[in-house]
Each structure stands twice: as structure tokens, then as C-alpha cells.
Amino acid sequence: MLHLVVCLKQILDPEIPPADFKLDPSAQRAAPTASLVASIFDENALEIALQLREKVGDARITAISLGPPSAVDVLRKALSMRADDAILIREEDFPGIDAHGCARVLAAAIRKLPPADLILCGRETGDWHGGLVAAFLAAEFDRPYTNFVAGITKEGDHFHLRRQTEDGWEIVRSAAPAVITVTNDDHNLPRIPKVKDNMMAFRKQIPAWTASDLGLVPASVAGPNSKLEQSRLYVPVVDRKCEIITGDNAEAKARQLVERLAALQVI
């Protein structure tokens, strides 16, 4: 049986309009002006884990999240998409955790599970866009790491990973166990949970593991990124005026637009 572990983080909805975005008075993070959602690529990651399970038949998917109590919502969503198990790790136990720490805590949790054949993460979170945790997990476990994967097949004891590049696609053959990050394409849009699966997910127990459950001393997990000091977090000002092309009909607007483009010397 394959064991697939999907790491999901709960974040503020990244798709709110800029006008609704505010900084927290501490000016160290965003104010909670939006609802909380699963980071978008993490759901793409879960989707391709589900597709892989459908292809190989015999696989188990565990969703894990290091987060506040509200992060159970992300895990419930994962269960309703039909992950088999979900585990929350109490983020409160690890104040001020950095990307290295996050990877170490997730690694400690994954070590408590049945051995993972594949660990799937999003390519980057939609809030801080670190792009680090998955590669750090791979380094923690000393496993091969492949980024920007959009689809997987199992070929013998290897995975074939369809990976996005600047100009197209690659098939990367990877030994198992492996760690990957997932990017979006038209084949891995997260599925919509069925109503009965929502109900099943709601009844399921989601354990919340603590630092001591993982045998970790919070202070010892921090890595070099914790030494970076955020001196400023600010909303950049865009000061552009848009000239709206007017006209009685589309034809008049099109002519006017061409005139203005010619004046800008771009056509």
C-alpha cells in the first residue's frame, strides 16, 4: 500500500481585492480582514494525491497541517475531498516558527505515521510565498525532491512526475520515497466535495498533536531563517491614473484606442 502525505496550510483568503487588504497594527502581518482558506496549491496537491490513489487503487492519504485550532477546517475539507486521515499539529506550541522549524515539526509528525512513500506540498503558500518548506522536508528526510509537479503516475517502484518548466513539461522519474511540490494545471483543479462526504468529514475525529506528542522542544526547531528580522512590512503605493477611452460605440472606442496607442509609440 502506498502512503501519501499531503501538507496543507490555512491562510487568509489570498483572492480578496487589494482595497480590503489591511495590515495588522503590529505591521508584522496582515490583519484578519478575510476568511480563512486552504492555501491554493495545497488543494492542487491533495487533488493529485487523490488521482494517484484512484490510479493505483491501494493507497492511503494523510492530510496534515501545522496551524491554529481553526486549521481543522482545512483538514475537514481535505477529509471531505476524501483524504483518509487528518492530523492537526498545534502551532501555538511553536511560537514564531520559521520555515526550517515548520519542516522539522512536519517531519517529526510524519515520522510518527506509517512510512510515507510520497510527501506532497504546494509550490508556495498564498500568504508568505516562502517556497521552502517542501525542499527543507526533503533535506530533513534526505529524499529526492522535485518541484512544480502537476501529475503523477507510479511505474514499478518509481514515480513518474509531470513537472512544469519555463517552456513546457518534463517527465521526472523519481525513486520513492520522494518529496514534491505541486503547481496548478487544468488537470488538478481541486474537486468539489460531495454532500455525503462533507457529513462524513464532520463526524471524523481529528487529533491535535502537541510539541510533547512529537517529542520536540519548541526552541530547538528554529533554523537560520528565524534570524532574519522583518524591519518593515508595507503596502506599496501605486499611483497611476487610467485614461478611460470613451466613445459612442465600439468602433469609436477602437479608433480612439489606436490613436492613443500610436501616441504612446507602442504600435
Partner: peptide
């Protein structure tokens, strides 16, 4: 840039 480009984070790396 963070929060999808809605903010900029300025970080100081001192040693190491």
C-alpha cells in the same frame, strides 16, 4: 513581495 503582491516585506540578514 508577500500576500500575493499586496505588501512588501523588508528583511534584514545580519550575519551568517
Amino acid at each position: 513581495p508577500v500576500y500575493g503582491g499586496k505588501a512588501n516585506s523588508e528583511l534584514i540578514a545580519r550575519q551568517g
